[in-house]
Every structure is written in C-alpha cells, then in structure tokens.
C-alpha cells in the first residue's frame, strides 16, 4: 500500500464544557481549547501504525475549515504524518461539503486507504466517511475496532449494536475509527519542532471547484431540558420503597 489519507477535524476539546453564546447563535469558541476530534486522532494513530509496520509508505493528513485548522494539522504532523493539506473555508462546513472536498483530494492523491473518525464530537453527525465512500463509489467500513490490511483488501471488525461484525473490503476504501481501535500516542517536544518544517499545503473550496452544501440550515441553538432534581435515599429499604412508589416491582 502506498498512501493513506487521514481526515482531521478541529473541534472544541473533549474536556471543555461547552456554553451557548448569549444570542444562542452557536457555542462560545473564543478562548476555548481546540483539538483534533478524538476519533480522527485514533484514525491517524492507526495509519501511522500501518506505516510503521511497513504496510504503507506515506501518511498525509487533510482538514477543511478556517486557517486555524493548521494547528491541528501541525499536531497531526507532530504525531508522525508526512505532510498536510488544508482546504480553507471560513463558512460552516456540512459533512456533505467536507465529503465533496475530500473526494477532490482523493482524486488528486489516489490514496489506497482513507481513515477518519466515525463521528466528530461537536456536531455528532457520523456522516462524512460514509458520504465520501458513496461519492467515491468505494467500500466503507464504519465503527472499526480492528483493521487488518492484507494486500489489496482489508479485514475490518466493526462495533455494531449486536456485537462485532467482520467485513472484508477491497482497497481503496474508507474506514472510520471507533474508540477501541487503538490508543493514540503522545506527542513529544522534538516532534513538535520537527513538524514545523513539514510541508503544509493550503487550498480553497472554490479552488477545488466544490460547491458548499446548503440544504440543511441551523435555525436555533438551545440548552437541553434539565431533569427535575432527584432525591437521595439512605438505605436499601428506602430505595425499594421509592421504587414501589414510582410503580416498579409492585
């Protein structure tokens, strides 16, 4: 296998408790820690391991979004990716738009494998990988918890509701990473310094000839409904009484 393309999304860090903007137009992002979407980080780790085992010769990372995405691409380079491509776009990027942009990069780069996270932890959409695979007319293996590459095909174990499903896909293919595919490495300082010298190419959505999808509009952002405050009970008999009171186990 020659090339692996890994898609990275810049998202509000996993540990940040998000707040809505006062005008409810979205979430507060000023001064908030941003990171690589954790599932994408797992995807990148898997690509790097394949390269380290001699199963791929190059791993490149791509992202789409504002120029600040360069920070996450640099982190990807520090983890070990060889080079990076940013499709700059300041507007909202819908999953279908991202998939169309990634398709253009796929056509240019001809990767044997595209790896990305199963979902982004901001919009929780869980769409981009499947959409890219559809537009590319290639196989998809979503929610991967194990990936074995054997020549021209890959055997993927998928985390599905009923258990673990194993499928075999011909390459090139799109694989989306689930939580238990691996544990991503920590980046060390010398790698961060080295990453500054690695190539990072910048393109634009318009330059790629991609039309942004505007078929879904966000009208409002709201807080979730709070549950009513609960009660504490002191022991098992009190708990059982409370359960009976709510109509259970009578």
């Amino acid at each position: 296998m020659q090339k692996i393309m890994v898609c990275l999304k810049r998202v509000v860090d996993y540990n940040v408790r998000i707040r809505l903007r006062p005008d409810h137009s979205g979430v507060v992002s000023d001064g908030v820690k941003m990171s690589i979407n954790p599932f994408d980080e797992i995807a990148l780790e898997e690509a790097l391991r394949l390269r380290e085992r001699g199963l791929a010769s190059e791993v490149f990372v791509v992202s789409i979004g504002p120029s600040d995405c360069q920070q996450q691409l640099r982190t990807g380079l520090a983890m070990g990716a060889d080079r990076a491509v940013l499709v700059e776009e300041d507007g909202e990027v819908a999953p279908l738009t991202a998939a169309r942009a990634f398709l253009k990069l796929v056509e240019r780069e001809q990767p044997d494998l595209v790896l990305l996270g199963k979902q982004a932890i901001d919009d929780d959409c869980n769409q981009t990988g499947q959409m890219l695979a559809a537009l590319w007319d290639r196989p998809q293996a979503t929610f991967a918890s194990k990936l074995e590459v054997n020549g021209g095909s890959a055997t993927v174990t998928r985390e599905v509701d009923a258990g673990l499903e194993v499928i075999e896909v011909e390459l090139p293919a799109v694989v989306t990473a689930d939580l238990r595919l691996n544990e991503p490495r920590y980046v060390k300082l010398p790698e961060i310094m080295k990453a500054k010298k690695k190539p990072l190419e910048t393109l634009t959505l318009g330059g790629l000839g991609v039309e942004a999808d505007t078929s879904l509009r966000t009208l409002a952002w709201n807080e979730p409904q709070e549950r009513q405050k609960g009660v504490m009970v002191s022991d098992v008999p009190a708990l059982v009484a409370a359960l009976h009171d709510k109509g259970f186990f009578n």
Binding site: V27, A94, T218, N222
Partner: peptide, 30 residues
Amino acid sequence: VAQVSDLMAVEGPRRFRRPVYAGNAIVTVE
C-alpha cells in the same frame, strides 16, 4: 443531500430538533 442525524423531535415537515455536543446543546434545523 444533507442528512439530519439523530432526529429527536419534529417541529414541522422539514423542521426538526437534534442533539449536538453529546446532548449539551439542541439545534433546530430545517
């Protein structure tokens, strides 16, 4: 076309609510 993921409430034939940020915010989409 786009997809509406995790449709949780119907506000109109083309208008829906869905959770984002692990349910920490709810958006209305059309």
